[in-house]
Amino acid sequence: MENELLKKLNGRDESALGDIQKNYGKMIYALSLRILGSREDAEECANDVLLEIWNTVPPKQPERISAYACMLARRTAIDKLRANTAGKRGGVEYILATAELENELCICDTAAEDIDSYEISELINEFLGSLSSRDRYIFIARYYAFEDISEIAVKLGMAKNAVNIRLSRMRKRLRCLFAERNIYI
């Protein structure tokens, strides 16, 4: 299906958008809603994501349209939230997950302006690669996709406090890794 989708996009076949909507629309909308906290904003974001896929493929040739759509949805929703001048705070889980990270990892009093997001991404990639697949899923579900902890627990058949404890330990490990590399956020 992914190959077919890519073929349609490259061939500028507009039915590709309908296929993307059908297969990934819910994921795009749900992620947008968790970040933006508003149905209207999430709908607008989902539409923007579809448009961006259409405008960027080609020349981009993502390996998987699903992952590309997910990445676009996250970025678009967060950009929309930051640009929002009406003082909206975003979805509950976005706020909670962001606060968890900020409390654990953003501890340096001085600004680290010379460390860019790319360097931090590389370190986080290294960190994710060192995790078990279960822990990696938990980390990404919570801090990439802003899923509710209870939902993560249900999907993995775990107790919710077990998920909490794993997240806490991973945040601590990530903080230690940053410190080892002299990276302070």
Binding site: Y118, I124, I140
Partner: peptide, 15 residues
């Protein structure tokens, strides 16, 4: 933003 820039393979695995 840094978390948003993780390798696509991890996002694929999550999906």
């Amino acid at each position: 933003d840094a978390i948003g820039g993780i390798d696509e393979k991890f996002v694929e695995e999550y999906i």
